[in-house]
Design a binder for these strands. Structure first.
Length: 504
RNA sequence: GUCUUGUUAGCUCAGCUGGUAGAGCACGUCACUUUUAAUGAUGUGGCCGAUGGUUCGAAUCCAUCACAGGACACCA
């Protein structure tokens, strides 16, 4: 039941006492005329003044009370707004008769949002503060804040009640400010290159564009199911067919899979498609993009990430097959022989799913022996065609595709390729995926005949790329769980009986 | 999905081999007009995650479940 907690009860009584005194505990007429950081900057000259004060200046600031120190007839409190923290000096004799003793000391407390007017001065301890001459309550908090020193550290509380985390941990706010900047810079970078931002459907009749299981939702008036999109790829390519030559979309994808430190059911990506370009051009623009981000976010080229230091001037390129031997340490005679790969994987105590083709086995070798070793930014190129159902074949080596994935800190950050625009080849590859689906691979692509129709009208040679924004932000903010870069990460419901279940 | 660790006051945490539950902060009362997690005195505050079991007796031992963290498996 709401409000049953005894501390909350106590505070609700204070709300009633305030109302009885004619004070609105949820006032709506804020008169703030500066932020805390501006106040601190504008008044930084006070400490050089003779009395360390200037009673002719007057400012009104607002914020949440974070610390409350009563010392008889005077008090120090600290209030915090989005910009920073400020100390306020409150004395009985500078406030209306009786206010200090009966209202300020009794009914105002940590967590309340207040508005204070007064003049700047520097305390004996040397802290620039505000000498209060007018004190107003703006919003009463009836729930007590967590402990002032340790704050809230319980991850479950931090994720489920993110607002509390944000109140108590100012560095969390910084992470999300950085995230916002990354998205805004990404948008500006591509716009400046002439890309058009577009929005394509989130509800798909066929979930395509990636190997993943979709969420299903239902359209009542049509009486049909729809899939939450797993990727915008096939729609963006239809736009290239339609004549747009450079498009991008920054938004959510949904995948019906497990959750862990690097997976949330909904995640943000940018996908961009660029006509008359190849994956080689994408490598160039990707390097440029990182340079742009690092420049505008003022990040060091030698970026610390956990125990690692990543050198963002050391971008390298290596074909996948080559990486298996030079980085993965797999013998050269093994990597192109299906039977030898199976033998090798088994010798390393790895289970091999039956029925895998050569390309899939090479992918397995890469995942097992190479991926985690790619710390500095590495473009792995030339992917086997079997694991790249939407990518264009190399003109000289038809068994591989013009594709790369970018790895940083042992993790995939981007996936890109010259797009397959041969409608018949695309049709055959979809059919291959359908066979895999029949054989039990529930993440294989489905046939999308409308997309084949689109390609039949001719899509200019095009290169396309997707970048996982969440993982990119993790990297740039030195966070190691995707939940720490999502404001409201997916959590299981606390009480099963409060949610609908289709089990009965 | 598997393994593993955790869940005790609003928050941060103690609680040993089973014997009626503890601290700090917060909150209440008192003192204090330059403090820095202010200080001193004093008091209130608990369905020990849930359900079963073992036992004369369970926060503690056992089982099941829920949620969370970590690792592995799969994926981006």
């Amino acid at each position: 039941m709401a409000f049953e907690n005894k501390f909350i009860q106590q505070r609700i009584e204070k709300v009633e006492l305030l109302r009885a005194e004619g004070i609105n505990p949820y006032s709506n007429d804020s008169r703030r005329n500066t932020t805390i950081v501006k106040y601190l900057n504008v008044n930084s000259d006070i400490e050089n003044m003779q009395n360390k004060r200037d009673e002719n200046r007057n400012y009104t600031v607002s914020g949440r009370i974070k610390l409350f120190r009563i010392m008889g007839k005077a008090s120090f409190i600290k209030i915090e707004d989005e910009s920073g923290m400020l100390q306020i000096y409150v004395t009985r004799d500078n406030l209306p008769e009786g206010f200090y003793n009966s209202t300020f000391k009794k009914l105002i407390e940590i967590g309340d949002i207040v508005e204070i007017s007064g003049f700047p001065f520097v305390t004996g301890q040397g802290e620039l503060s505000l000498h209060c001459s007018e004190f107003r309550l703006l919003t009463k908090a009836i729930a007590p804040l967590p402990e002032k020193f340790h704050g809230v550290t319980d991850k479950e509380i931090r994720y489920r009640q993110r607002y509390l985390d944000l109140i108590m941990n100012s560095e969390v706010r910084k992470t999300f400010q950085t995230r916002s900047k990354v998205i805004s810079l990404t948008r500006r970078f591509f716009e400046d290159k002439g890309f058009l931002e577009v929005e394509t459907p989130m509800m798909h009749p066929i979930a395509g564009g990636a190997n993943a299981k979709p969420f299903v939702t239902h359209h009542n008036s049509l009486g049909i199911d729809r899939f939450l999109r797993i990727a915008p790829e096939l729609y963006l390519k239809r736009l290239i067919v339609g004549g747009f030559e450079a498009v991008f979309e920054i938004n959510r994808n949904f995948r019906n899979e497990g959750m862990d430190a690097t997976h949330n059911p909904e995640f943000t990506s940018i996908e961009f498609y660029w006509a008359y370009k190849t994956y080689k051009d994408l490598i160039k623009i990707t390097k440029e993009y990182f340079e742009y981000l690092f420049d505008h976010l003022r990040l060091p080229i030698m970026l610390p990430y956990g125990d690692l230091v990543i050198n963002f001037e050391n971008f390298t390129e290596i074909p996948l097959i080559e990486s298996l031997t030079t980085i993965g340490g797999v013998a050269a005679e093994v990597v192109n022989d299906k039977e030898k790969i199976i033998e090798y994987l088994k010798s390393q105590n790895l289970t091999v799913k039956p029925g895998m083709n050569l390309g899939q086995l090479q992918g397995e070798l890469f995942d097992e022996f190479v991926e985690e070793k790619l710390i500095d930014p590495t473009f792995i190129t030339e992917y086997p065609v079997e694991i790249s159902p939407l990518a264009r074949r190399s003109d000289t080596k038809p068994e591989i595709t013009e594709r790369f994935e970018l790895f940083i800190a042992g993790r995939e950050i981007a996936n890109a390729f010259s797009e397959l625009n041969d409608p018949i080849d695309q049709y055959e590859r979809f059919k291959g995926q359908c066979d895999a689906r029949e054989a039990g691979d529930d993440e294989a692509h489905e046939m999308d005949e409308d997309f084949i129709d689109a390609l039949s009208y001719g899509m200019a040679p095009t290169a396309g790329q997707g970048i996982g924004i969440d993982r990119l932000v993790m990297l740039l903010t030195n966070e190691h769980s995707i939940r720490d870069v999502l404001l409201f990460p997916a959590m299981k419901p606390l009480h099963r009986d409060e949610v609908h279940s289709d089990e009965e």
